[in-house]
Amino acid sequence: MNDAASINPTPPLLQVEGLARHYRRGPPLARRTTFSLQADFRLDAPAVIGVLGPNGSGKTTLFELVTGSNLPDAGRVLVRGQDIHGVRTKERDRLAIHYHQSYQLRRFQRRKPDWMLDAAASDAPWVHLFDEPQFNTQDGYIGFMLDFFRQLRSEGRLVLLCLHPNERFHVEILREICEGFLFVHQGSVTPLPDFEHLVAEPRVRQYLGALAP
């Protein structure tokens, strides 16, 4: 049946295609790669997705690439079908927004001046990325934040929640709120469909250690 939906399907909320970022050091003729991040995944529908992995594995680099504040060496990031690195820098947070733990501002990187880039096709971000928010167990803040994530999801948004578990309740937060996961390890990003698959992954169990269920 040829209806409008089949002819013009809604694009995924977030599509990461062949994304790569390489960090190199040394003199120009003898530079060596010190770290590489590679990612290829898609998240079609509104959801709360947990992101976790060891320190230095590339989680924040991934978030910066998704929001356009870091330039990829290869690949692209599509938010509702629009390449975020082709959007004017001051409008990229209308597609995806990165909430930093330290609340510092990042300078957006670009290869072209803004007048040569596209306008954002959205007035409000479709993808919300929370980078290790500080959960306070004393004043009901956790419940407030979880309700906020659920509200964003109910409005058709995608939430990426990056946590580095160092307490048992962090793991319980991931179990309660997340519908899928991205495990970042040594520069590779592995999608996992649910909490059961997450904790069954040997690298995740090694990473969680005594906190593994």
Rank of each mutant, 00 (worst) to 15 (best):
D83E: 08
D83C: 07
D83A: 08
I84K: 05
I84L: 08
I84S: 01
I84G: 01
G86T: 02
R88F: 08
T89G: 07
T89E: 10
K90D: 11
K90M: 07
E91L: 10
E91M: 08
R92D: 05
R92G: 04
R92N: 05
D93I: 07
D93R: 12
D93S: 15
D93E: 14
D93P: 06
D93N: 15
R94N: 10
R94S: 01
R94E: 03
L95Y: 00
L95V: 00
L95K: 02
L95C: 05
A96H: 04
A96G: 03
I97L: 10
I97V: 15
H98W: 13
Y99L: 10
H100T: 09
H100G: 00
H100Y: 07
Q101G: 06
Y103V: 11
Y103W: 09
Y103M: 14
Y103C: 01
Q104C: 03
Q104P: 05
L105H: 12
L105T: 15
R106L: 15
R106T: 11
R107P: 04
R107H: 13
Q109K: 14
Q109S: 10
Q109L: 12
Q109P: 02
R110K: 13
R110H: 13
R111N: 11
R111D: 14
R111F: 13
R111S: 15
K112A: 12
K112C: 02
K112R: 14
K112I: 03
P113N: 02
D114V: 08
D114S: 10
D114K: 06
W115Y: 13
W115V: 09
M116D: 02
M116V: 08
M116R: 15
M116L: 13
L117C: 02
L117T: 00
D118E: 12
D118P: 00
D118I: 00
D118M: 06
A119Y: 12
A119G: 11
A119N: 13
A120P: 08
A120T: 06
A120I: 05
A121S: 15
A121P: 05
A121G: 14
S122W: 09
S122T: 03
S122M: 12
S122I: 00
D123W: 09
A124E: 13
A124V: 15
A124N: 06
A124R: 14
P125E: 04
W126T: 10
W126A: 13
V127F: 04
L129T: 06
F130I: 00
F130T: 00
F130D: 00
F130W: 14
D131L: 04
D131A: 03
D131T: 05
E132P: 10
E132G: 01
E132D: 15
E132K: 09
E132H: 09
E132L: 11
E132A: 09
P133L: 04
Q134D: 09
Q134V: 12
Q134W: 07
Q134H: 11
F135K: 03
F135L: 15
T137F: 11
T137C: 08
Q138C: 02
G140K: 04
Y141L: 11
Y141T: 09
I142E: 05
I142C: 03
I142L: 05
G143E: 15
F144I: 07
F144W: 10
F144S: 11
M145F: 15
M145T: 08
M145C: 13
M145V: 13
L146R: 06
L146Y: 06
L146D: 01
